[in-house]
Design a protein around this nucleic acid. Sequence first.
DNA 1: TCCTTTAGTTGAACGTGTTCAAATAATGCT
DNA 2: AGCATTATTTGAACACGTTCAACTAAAGGA
Lengths: 264, 264
Amino acid sequence: MSATSRTKAEVTEVQTGVAVQAAGSQPSLVEHESPVPATLGKKGEMTRQQILSAALNLFRERGFDAATMRDIAESAGMSLGASYYYFPSKESIVSAYYDYVQQEHKVRVEREISKAKNLRQRLGIAFHTKLDIIQNDRRLLVALFRYGGDPHHPLSWFGPATSRQRELSMAVFAHALGDQKLPKDVRYFAPLALWALHMGLILYFVNDSSDEQRRTRRLLDGTLDLVTRAFDLATAPVLQPILRPIRKRVTELLTDAGLAPNPG
Amino acid sequence: MSATSRTKAEVTEVQTGVAVQAAGSQPSLVEHESPVPATLGKKGEMTRQQILSAALNLFRERGFDAATMRDIAESAGMSLGASYYYFPSKESIVSAYYDYVQQEHKVRVEREISKAKNLRQRLGIAFHTKLDIIQNDRRLLVALFRYGGDPHHPLSWFGPATSRQRELSMAVFAHALGDQKLPKDVRYFAPLALWALHMGLILYFVNDSSDEQRRTRRLLDGTLDLVTRAFDLATAPVLQPILRPIRKRVTELLTDAGLAPNPG
DNA sequence: TCCTTTAGTTGAACGTGTTCAAATAATGCT
DNA sequence: AGCATTATTTGAACACGTTCAACTAAAGGA
């Protein structure tokens, strides 16, 4: 079915990985408007990772809301105020975790993508890998969706503060598309569409109470079958007279709405 | 362009309407798990409306977060604790407002739908009317999206507490479809798809800072043109050999995922 | 070594949404 | 009218995320 391996070992690796990973490699989302000093000393980075690790453990145990900042600070062995020296807000901890997810996604997809024999399998790797990484973290992902609709919140999906995250994610999907022969406009918008699809799937995933979220996996596989077929249809010469004007109109619409990639 | 009139007068009517409207007609979302007594006296209903009205004014003035429950209670002329006798939470006030929006949407669409000459215009009425109603309330609608991703929150989009709201909204779109000739499966899923589309548009709408949100209106009109064309294509006999198996697969997928309407 | 600057830490305080036992007002029954 | 029940109101309290002025520790230069 899926072109991706999903072993328990991999999932565990993620959980420890985020705590152990070398610090300072990926820039943090929150640096954009955070009071955190731009330069953290060696000890500072360690402390930051301690807070992140403690927070993630508590989030996984109790959920995002039930784990308080006081709990997190205590679990990380410091005072409440100190933790705010490293993270400007509780949500920014989740955001830092999501930065890691993004990077890990990129790394894994680049590593595994060569195993795929066709577009369907490449998409399978891109999507399943993402779910693999966040498999045990549904209880903290709710925080990501909390301020999506608030345009003035720094963590809004649409805000400029998260645009880099979006672009990184879209780049992974673009990479998964590879050199697949596609109409130019389809190729242009496909990463955005795949990103949107993957956001919707994560939303479903977070709400999926089936055993190990198998329901989401099934939905994903079925959806990807259809997506692949849609890409085939999009290139079928017979349908071009019908599809080309529609695609043109869709492109105009999205561009006018400011939803086209790389507007700035 | 649009089949709907969008005058300032109508918008104003809405704003006062929600405060004046006869109480007790539409059941409140929050009754599902709220400590609010099932029976509110005549005076109690008045007080509830006072709180709702005061809250909406403050939400519109300052935004959802900046308007505190203490402000609302004071503006409604009562103590902080008293307001919690009528609304179990701050978000539930917005939810009550959205109940009103839903009812008003139904009333307006039923009133105006006969003016439409075709499917495109009926859809235009259904969608534009919704935006008309919430035109000046973007600052409070952010609260609706806040807990959408949290499966255990009573205001989650997926939760059972909001299923009635969803069904009422889908019923409006089903009504707008009218007796349009459509394949059975398309007819079955169309209200859900239109509801999802309208949620996405509201999300865009809330974030739209263009003058009077004209950008959303343009996006909407263009999208509806495409939707109408899609419905046409869905019924075109020539395409049935291609489309029918795809539709069948989509139906299976959505049903298996528990996303089909009226599952219970 | 001493001083200056920066990095990191503290604990108290603020304002927030929410809760609740107790008090009061209204209603309805006999 | 008097009583019992229900409806409403109160104000204090709680726990939370966040802020901040003051403090201590470390680093670096002369």
